[in-house]
Design a protein around this nucleic acid. Sequence first.
RNA 1: GGACUGUUGGCGCAGUUGGCUAGCGCGUCUCCAUGACACGGAGAAGGUCACUGGUUCGAGCCCAGUACAGUCCA
Length: 1039
Amino acid sequence: MIANSATEIDSSGLAKSYRPGDHESAMATRWREAGCFKANPHSKAQPFTMFIPPPNVTAALHLGHALNNTLQDTLARHARMRGMDVLWMPGTDHAGIATQTVVERRLALQGKKRVDFSRDEFVAQVQAWKDEYERVILEQLVAMGCSCDFDRTRFTMDPVCAAGVRAGFFRLFQDGLIERGRRLVNWDPKTKTAIADDEVVMRDVDGKMWYLKYPLSDGSGTITVATTRPETMLGDTAVAMNPKDPRAASLRGKKIRLPIVGREIPIVEDDYVVMSLAMGGDASDAKAEVATGFLKVTPAHDPNDFDIGRRHNLAVINVLGPDGAISDRHGWQDVSADAKAFVGLSREDARKAIVNWFKVNGLLENERPWKHAVGHSDRSGVAIEPWLSDQWFVRVTDERLRGAALKAMAPDQFEGVSPAGKAPGDGEIRFFPPRYAKTFQSWHESLRDWCISRQLWWGHRIPVWTRDAKDEALTQSTSLRGAEMVAVNSKWSALGAAHRMRKRDDGSVEESVCLPLELDHVAAQLVAVGFAQDQDVLDTWFSSALWPLSTLGWPHPEKYPDMKGMLERYNPSSVLSTARDIITLWVSRMTMFNRYFLGGKVPFKHVYIHPVIQDGFGQRMSKSLGNGLDPRDVIHSHGADALRYTLLDLTTDTQDVRVQIDMIDPESGETFEPEFMRAPSGHMVAAPIQKSPKTPSKTMVSTYGAASGLATPSAEQPLARNTSGRFDMGRNVATKLWNASRFALMNTPQPAREVDAATRPLLDRWMLSRVAGALARADRALSEYRFSDFAAAGYDLLWRDFCDWFLEAAKPTAKNDPAQQCVMACSLSSIVRMFHPAMPHISEALWSAVNKHAACAVRGLDMKSTDLLATSSWPVAHASLIDANAEAEFARAQALVEAIRNARGERQVNPKKRIKLLASAKASQVVALAGGVVETLAGVDGVLPLTHARSSTAASMTFEGEECWLDGLVDALDIGAERARLSKLLAERQRAVAGYKGKLSNAGYMAKAPPTVVQETQKMLLDAQAEVETVERSLRELA
RNA sequence: GGACUGUUGGCGCAGUUGGCUAGCGCGUCUCCAUGACACGGAGAAGGUCACUGGUUCGAGCCCAGUACAGUCCA
């Protein structure tokens, strides 16, 4: 035989070993060709729906995606096998700012900027990037075995989703839940766009606290303000102090002459101001220690000051431009001659210049180091600027949105009195693990209005056309009082558009017309009369928030041929699986929108929050640390199923997942543990240059080296890829499953058609009971989203029960016992089915061989077969199959086998050596019950009564307190070793006896412990006492 | 600053209403190329369950406090 040993097919019908690469894409092709992941809206089966959290098209999927998609696919495949109509909706997210940023960065490498292109040209560039990564992402999903309904793949900016976004925006606009307003937003001066609260990351910064002296207008002295941002003083419009401050009375009504600017500003009293320690401030507040009790108030450049300004009707003077530099063109009118010098300076230069001015003029009282948290843009990394600008907001604080989200929570997960009523959808969302309900609740309780406009080019353009109002009558309208938008009856509203007006800060009036998609043709008419479409695009989360609606064709699914009835059938979905930090960004907003647009319907019943993947040091994986793992690399080195199984196994309820990073030597292909070092940021990273473990003269660049720019990969010094030994575990399980299947198939040439477990010997009854038990465990684990336990249920059944005990014990008997072959074939079929949700490729690759026994059946174990495992049934075991008696008896046999093996192992006896067992009464009983199993597994070729003559080299052992002997174990007994062993055992058993006696002589224990527990202890005592006697006798005989 | 989570053999983790000898994987040591599998089989060693106090007949588990670590939110 010349065939390749790995691919050679043996009597099992399977190749000798499983190589993932030989099967994975073939299985994916079979599934695709069979169309078995397609949802069927016309099916009578119960639907099971998940919407994939659409990955950003910025980059390929990372290990966190691999984890989440593995979990979802496991749920999907399990549900499908249980006969449900599964819709797993796939798709990708355009990820506005993130994608625009990566494309701009790439253009920058070519020395180009966004503004070098027209808007359309630039969007085309981003579109090309999106096309590339969307393809990569979808390929990755397929490679991982994800059973998404790929024919329905959506993209948040495709026409179907865009129609949903238009409809959602229009409806909210019309209902007054979207409005335009001049407010403080988080401004990113680098990308020059507003960003959402959750795109701001707080970082501790070593800054300074400056103490500036402000003179009183009446010349009666100065007061001192403490600030970390002196440059904003140009926009100060008040100084605030706490009304409880003892100095308040004497300063009340006085004014300040603002240095440099010369502006006269009031002293106001506000509870917000932290009092200095000297004036009775709260010592537990760290701020009190640095506070002076006087706060400069800059409403245009600080959110807290903005609120103070509102409370005291202060002017709002904006002294910064969109680039963060000092500017007199964005609302600052009273620019003094002195102040002119600062205009045009960057915020950093302005800070130095202002501090210097105060120093030179003797008004700088002090400066001291001060560490504080500063918001930074998640994308560009620069410090954000609270900046006053016209933006669009969703009024999520409205009861119709926020209130609806809170009411959606399951009442028992709500902290306090649940607001849920009897309305549709109320109380229907449940979190797993339950602690995340709290995150959801507290987010909504401290919600602020959501800024949805972004000054970007990549995204959904805001469908609003505006102009300065021209109609005198309207601009004089008394209803235009505050900044609120007021509905207008006009030719536009008569057409079905939403027409609004509002008064700007400067008193001019702005007209806005929002067009639904159906009225797009009206846009030209609007433009003709001076309207222009808003330049901004929507926050990417706006379209994400509509994902469960837009992917199903909302608001007009009937317009799309394959979507009729989808919305009613698949929304609410069954479960949303997502990451912790997405609860606020996405889960909340989907809940609000879905309920608002669909009459209270929730978008999902369950929310499962999966763990975060960290590296071996407990650090989050990130590109810049180079501590990430590319799922494609793991699939290449270990296989997709190994990746999936390992991730499932790691997914427990409480812990985040640690995956230590190893590296692959590009030279030898070998995996090794790299040298780590501490980066300037304090993180542990792989040193930029690594030595090849085989040939230390050869070096390579680590991913950290490349990411940090500390090393550049070259031909001589190539980039080394990351992997992790963690995934060996999954690979080993795959191999075991393959080999167990091969062996079982080789041993089932002629299985009986039908078997009743009750007629079978202990071994078979036990095995079937274990199958039934494992199924129950697996089903329960998945229903509670305990994925690790699900993985363990399969592992224990396959490896521990089926391989270690059943197959080993059945080796001598199976080939001549058709009934046992039936038990073996059906157990195998159950196991392969059970592994399918975790390891779809290998299980499917095994299926055609395993399923050749489809006609065999064990009564009480229901399984239906199709040509594909993916569409075959999940096994259902009747309660009758669980045989507690068989499990108890078999456990005794296992204990006896283990005792004998222990005796052999301790004496290093060759496994081939057959021995005789001189069995006690209990041991004989167990041997008889087990029907040959003990002999097979313990290497015993003769069981004799205890009274039978034994040789002088026989060794003693105890079983259930009784003495047994093993004869033929060794040629010569090592008396010393034997005595040491027995003495140790004796001491240990005597301790146990003492322990049990102590318990039983405790009056409290006897009176209060449940009788079964007491009985158990009594039995333990008797056994231990018997064993003590046995061991003592053995010791005596040894002498 | 707030919230959440964790601290169990060298490493990574289980431990479901408090009750037999605290489990699993990796690693370590011994034996084994036995026709499923060395990505394997058999056996062994290794744990004062972070610390302090409390509740209880009984605590890894419940309560209070302390220390350390991580995550999320301000």
